[in-house]
Design a protein around this nucleic acid. Structure first.
Length: 499
RNA sequence: GGGCGCAUAGCUCAGUAGGUAGAGCAACUGGCUUUUAACCAGUAGGUCCCAGGUUCGAUCCCUGGUGCGCUCACCA
């Protein structure tokens, strides 16, 4: 037992066992979700069909309000919260066992659905069965878990001790489910591709490295599924998507977690314009389904997610904010220096330009807006714009200043792709693949149809649609520094002593 | 990794201008059959994050560390 186990509760378990009562019975019970009982109870004015009926519910009791011969206890399950009333008159044989109940215990209750004098919907218990005894006490009943670290380390407590928390994660789940249905309705096939990659590719990021013993090779956790999904387009699957967990060995902040979820999709015989339509339609639909409106509130600001979204060219946005063309290298360098960017002359011009764009333009992209036509050197996997060879057929979608989607007309010219890969390798940039993915080039040599591809950050979309300020609030178990033994804050001392 | 901030009872928080601490809730005992953070009376509960230093004396001051939050850099 850990320090969380309460001695009085251990004593209650021992007492139950000595009477032949199992505090952790093996069988579940048939019960109704509380939501259904609440709906079936109707209102005080118009009683529902379940009033007066014998019902069974199961859930966790958060506390006990004990009046001597009457006890009220709020019962919660995933779907809602409903009060249980336990009366001596109705529970004769069981009644002495009330002394063994504690906040946090999981119970099954059978009894008549009714109301109290004040009108509160209540199950008047006739049978109470302990399903699982809680040894650790629940958090403070009024505030719930407030300490943000504990909320994240002990999500299993956070989820039931604060009503709004589980809603966020239920919505996140619905978001993914709606997106799947949306894509399946449009002929997309959900696929699964490897997360262990022999070569890093599909994005610019530092990878996690691991090792396979039997093969005797180092492998990387994927930073993006892109190159595998496009192999499937070569394979003729035509419309594919993956809800892909990606891993990037980078810093952690409000919008970044080392593992995160991208919805990536690829559509043959399409280009980035189709991807714009698809993404704005999907985002609008998700907003309506999850929030009930096309206009959402994020961190106190309103965003209208009605399709179509505004389109704005990268170079035009750049010119508006900076007053000169983005390929005016001297101007870019001097402006960057002026803003204090790391701008020594050997810094790659295009990296510098991207940084200057981030600083001068991205701040103002409240959105929703598609930023289109990125400079080609920033888009090694995208097709060049036939109208202007300086730019690529690519867009990124910004909402509330967050980058939510990235898409392009996929480069399908194997010679051009090989050349761009070789340029990347030659740059020796540590954040760019250090090796040409020959197999991918060969896949293109077999012929890939014109293809539109897109990645949507599911975590950020969930933040936006559930109005959460940090990615860690939409991840059930965000990456935290591990704490040896037990994970609770009380083990910090042991940790410190080891150092 | 840099900067700023936080760490006190199981939980939420006070507090000590250096003299080893207190409330509410939770727990325990008793009372109460209609509460909604129930109420009333009583009891118990603390290495004041860790390690050094200064001091007669440190939870408080100093240094170092750990964890978390915010922020900057990197990234989606």
């Amino acid at each position: 037992m850990t320090e969380l186990a309460h001695p009085d509760r251990l004593a209650k378990i021992a007492a139950l066992r000595s009477e032949g009562k199992d505090p952790y019975p093996a069988r579940g019970v048939d019960c109704e979700p509380l939501e259904r009982l609440i709906a079936g109870g109707g209102s005080v004015e118009e009683p529902g069909p379940l009033i007066g009926e014998r019902v069974t519910a199961a859930g966790r009791i958060l506390g006990l309000r004990d009046f001597g011969k009457l006890i009220f206890a709020p019962l919660v399950d995933r779907s809602g919260r409903l009060q249980v009333g336990m009366q001596k008159d109705r529970l004769g044989d069981w009644w002495p066992d009330r002394k063994r109940l504690d906040g946090g215990d999981i119970l099954a209750v059978t009894g008549e659905l009714g109301r109290t004098q004040k009108g509160e919907l209540t199950i008047w218990a006739e049978e109470v069965q302990l399903l699982s005894k809680a040894l650790a006490p629940p958090p403070e009943k009024w505030h719930g878990l407030v300490d943000i670290e504990q909320r994240r380390r002990r999500r299993y407590v956070d989820l039931w001790s604060s009503e709004s928390v589980s809603e966020v994660f239920i919505k996140r789940s619905r978001l993914i489910s709606i997106a799947r249905r949306f894509l399946e309705e449009r002929g997309f096939l959900e696929v699964e591709t490897p997360t262990l990659h022999p070569i890093v590719g599909g994005a610019a990021a530092r990878p996690f490295t691991t090792h396979h013993n039997a093969l005797g090779v180092d492998l990387y956790l994927r930073i993006a599924p892109e190159l595998y999904l496009k192999r499937l387009i070569v394979g003729g699957l035509e419309r594919v998507f993956e809800v892909a967990r990606n891993f990037r060995n980078e810093g952690i902040d409000a919008t970044h977690n080392p593992e995160f979820t991208m919805l990536e999709l690829y559509q043959a015989q399409a280009d980035f314009r189709h991807m714009m339509e698809l993404s704005e339609t999907l985002v609008e639909e998700l907003a309506v389904e999850l929030t009930g409106s096309k206009t959402i509130t994020y961190r106190g600001r309103q965003f209208d997610l009605s399709a179509p979204f505004r389109r704005a060219r990268y170079d035009e946005l750049f010119r508006e904010k900076n007053g000169f063309e983005l390929d005016d290298e001297p101007a870019v360098r001097s402006k960057a220096a002026e803003l204090g960017l790391k701008a020594d002359p050997k810094t790659d011009f295009w990296k510098l330009l991207a940084e200057l764009f981030d600083v001068t333009v991205e701040e103002s992209l409240t959105g929703p807006v598609f930023v289109t036509h990125y400079p080609v050197p920033l888009c090694p996997l995208a097709k060049t714009d036939p109208q202007d060879a300086r730019f690529a057929e690519r867009f990124e979608l910004f909402i509330a200043g967050m980058e939510l989607a990235n898409a392009f007309s996929e480069l399908n010219d194997p010679q051009e792709q090989e050349r761009r890969f070789e340029e990347q390798v030659a740059s020796k940039d540590p954040e760019v693949p250090g090796e040409v993915d020959i197999d991918y080039v060969q896949a293109l040599e077999f012929g890939m149809p014109p293809t539109g591809g897109m990645g949507i950050g599911i975590d950020r979309l969930a933040m936006l649609l559930t109005d959460q300020p940090s990615i860690r609030d939409v991840l059930l178990f965000p990456t935290l520094r591990p704490q040896p033994q037990g994970g609770g804050p009380s083990s910090e001392q042991e940790h410190a002593q080891e150092k």
